[in-house]
């Protein structure tokens, strides 16, 4: 049921954004199609099952997005600085980090957030471990690297997905 309603809402939001209007003759066919699609698609997938629908989780989603965008801009500027410096100050390496997240969807979001942040790139995922290519390795043991890279996103995802 949760899966169904979230799929329906996502499809409706996409439809409204595509049409850019709230007129009734656009909303009704969109609602019908979204209802049918989520009715049939939800038997096959269960990606949204782990999502919590409490107000706290909702607020944390926005905080997560904010933290993510600030980090995106900061690290973009950092990578730009590295590229333009004549001596090319890179210190690359692949480090291992551990995550405590259980849900598959949350892990996907975490890996995507890490990859979207320039300077870090998820190369491989094995069980609890993410192997991350960093453009500037600060700390090559598991705990230190986890604290640097994963913790800032993980604490929000943990509240949203449990």
């Amino acid at each position: 049921m949760k899966n169904f309603s979230i799929t329906f809402i996502v499809l409706m939001v996409v439809w409204i954004l595509l049409n850019n209007s709230f007129r009734l003759e656009i909303l009704i066919p969109g609602a019908i199609v979204a209802f049918v699609i989520s009715l049939f698609a939800c038997r096959l997938c269960n990606v949204f099952v782990d999502m919590k629908l409490t107000p706290k989780a909702f607020a944390y989603t926005f905080i997560f997005l904010g933290v993510f965008f600030i980090d995106l801009i900061k690290s973009n500027l950092d990578v730009a600085r590295r590229v333009l410096t004549p001596s090319l100050p890179i210190n690359p390496g692949i480090v291992e980090v551990k995550t405590t997240l259980k849900s598959k969807f949350a892990r996907m979001l975490l890996a995507n957030a890490i990859t979207l942040t320039p300077g870090t790139l998820t190369v491989e995922v094995k069980d609890e471990s993410f192997f991350i290519h960093c453009i500037d390795v600060q700390d090559d043991d598991i705990e230190g690297a986890s604290k640097d890279i994963v913790k800032k996103f993980e604490k929000y995802l943990e509240v949203i997905y449990g």
């Binding site: 990578v79 590229v83 333009l84 090319l88 690359p92 979207l116 320039p118 190369v123 453009i135």
Partner: peptide, 29 residues
């Protein structure tokens, strides 16, 4: 400008992983 920096980085970086770092993701912003 960010896209330009990304393409400069694509030329300057020494190996495929660093090129991916700069080339695919400086482009996001």
């Amino acid at each position: 400008i960010f896209l330009l920096i990304a393409s400069i980085g694509l030329v300057r970086m020494p190996d495929v992983y660093n090129r991916l770092q700069v080339g695919t993701k400086a482009t996001t912003l």
